[in-house]
Amino acid sequence: MATTHAAAFTQSRPWSASEFESLLDNPITHYVGDPRCFALFQVIAGEAELLTIATHPSVQRQGLALETMREWHRQAAAMEANRAFLDVAADNVAAIALYERCGYHRCGVRRAYYSRETGTKTDALVMECRLP
């Protein structure tokens, strides 16, 4: 996961293997996908939160992220979550388009939330959707 995350997250600090291990040790954290594309999410009290999704650049634009989004939604709904949330960098146009295609809408903003390698900061859009 850390390898794919590092390849996909070039504008901000990718997560380390130990960070992934720590998250996966938590019983409310779940994983879907494979080494090419994966999502990490948490489910608690009827709500699900996407922690991260990453697609290796060598297989981007092949529908894997959409398939992975749909699968984590299915699994979260099976765990009795009825709403899903996520944060996305306001300048990540491709991710925002994917999330909107999956039924998300903007419900908040976290100002200057993400640090960029250039030293600048960008807002995070908070998005939510109803799960089937």
Score class of each variant (00 low, 15 high):
49 E>G: 01
42 Q>C: 00
33 G>L: 07
29 T>H: 10
47 E>I: 02
50 L>T: 03
35 P>C: 13
71 E>G: 04
37 C>H: 04
52 T>A: 03
56 H>F: 11
18 S>Q: 15
28 I>V: 06
70 R>E: 13
66 L>I: 10
18 S>C: 12
62 Q>A: 09
83 R>W: 12
27 P>H: 03
83 R>P: 07
46 G>S: 00
66 L>M: 07
70 R>Y: 04
76 A>V: 08
41 F>Y: 08
87 D>Y: 00
51 L>D: 05
31 Y>V: 08
45 A>V: 06
84 A>M: 12
29 T>R: 02
32 V>K: 02
50 L>F: 02
15 W>C: 08
56 H>N: 14
32 V>I: 05
32 V>F: 03
53 I>K: 05
86 L>T: 05
76 A>F: 03
81 A>V: 07
28 I>Q: 01
57 P>E: 11
16 S>V: 13
73 H>Q: 15
39 A>P: 11
43 V>I: 04
25 D>W: 06
78 A>W: 03
28 I>C: 04
39 A>R: 00
58 S>M: 11
81 A>G: 03
64 L>M: 13
56 H>G: 11
62 Q>V: 07
30 H>E: 09
30 H>A: 08
28 I>L: 02
52 T>I: 09
79 M>L: 15
42 Q>R: 05
68 T>I: 14
75 Q>C: 02
47 E>W: 01
70 R>Q: 15
34 D>K: 05
84 A>T: 11
78 A>I: 03
16 S>M: 13
82 N>L: 10
83 R>M: 12
35 P>D: 09
56 H>I: 12
50 L>A: 06
34 D>W: 04
29 T>E: 07
44 I>G: 00
33 G>N: 08
23 L>W: 14
70 R>C: 08
28 I>H: 01
50 L>R: 06
34 D>A: 05
78 A>Y: 00
81 A>C: 01
46 G>I: 02
48 A>R: 03
83 R>T: 12
59 V>Q: 09
59 V>F: 14
57 P>S: 09
43 V>S: 03
24 L>Q: 11
16 S>H: 09
50 L>V: 03
51 L>F: 04
44 I>Y: 00
68 T>A: 09
54 A>F: 10
20 F>I: 13
67 E>G: 11
44 I>A: 05
33 G>E: 10
76 A>R: 04
34 D>G: 10
24 L>D: 12
58 S>E: 15
53 I>W: 00
50 L>K: 01
61 R>H: 15
51 L>G: 05
25 D>R: 10
45 A>Y: 06
38 F>C: 04
35 P>R: 04
82 N>K: 11
80 E>Q: 06
41 F>K: 01
23 L>M: 15
85 F>C: 07
41 F>A: 08
44 I>H: 00
35 P>Q: 06
62 Q>K: 06
64 L>Q: 14
20 F>G: 14
47 E>K: 00
23 L>K: 06
77 A>F: 13
79 M>R: 07
64 L>C: 10
65 A>D: 02
66 L>G: 13
60 Q>L: 10
71 E>N: 10
28 I>P: 01
57 P>D: 11
72 W>F: 13
45 A>T: 01
72 W>N: 04
44 I>V: 11
86 L>Q: 03
69 M>W: 01
80 E>Y: 01
65 A>K: 07
44 I>L: 03
77 A>I: 07
44 I>E: 03
23 L>Y: 13
43 V>K: 02
66 L>A: 14
22 S>C: 11
24 L>T: 09
65 A>R: 07
79 M>S: 05
24 L>H: 10
